[in-house]
């Protein structure tokens, strides 16, 4: 009997939780705020689903209830993607080491 593809996805999911566990414990506490803003940005990869929904209609019916929700979700996720990555970059550029000259 074949294995349900769901099991494979579940395996990926469980293993990713473990990867996340070890990777996040190694994040230095001083970068916990950038960690939150960057996780915000990457979890907005949910935009993939929004794009599928937005492009589902044909040329006559670009706007139907489903695709409208898709379009709105695209905007929300885009705010997060751009906002999240840019604000993370802004924060990270502020972390500087002590200057050598004294």
């Amino acid at each position: 009997m074949e294995i349900d593809p769901f099991i494979f996805r579940l395996s990926i999911f469980i293993l990713s939780i473990f990867i996340g566990y070890y990777v996040v414990w190694s994040v230095t506490p001083s970068l916990h705020t950038p960690l939150m803003s960057v996780t915000n940005a990457i979890s907005s990869v949910i935009i993939v689903g929004a794009i599928i929904a937005g492009l589902a209609g044909n040329s006559d019916t670009i706007f139907n209830t489903s695709s409208i929700f898709g379009f709105l979700a695209i905007s929300l996720a885009a705010i997060n993607i751009f906002g999240g990555f840019l604000v993370t970059q802004r924060m990270l550029s502020m972390y500087k080491k002590k200057k050598k000259d004294k």
Binding site: S16, I17, G20, T39, V48
Partner: peptide, 19 residues
């Protein structure tokens, strides 16, 4: 991610969730 059968979303969700 499970609904869409999308690996990028499943991996990211797990990472962010455990983070």
């Amino acid at each position: 991610g499970f609904t869409l059968e999308n690996t990028a979303l499943i991996i990211t969700g797990a990472l962010v969730g455990s983070s």
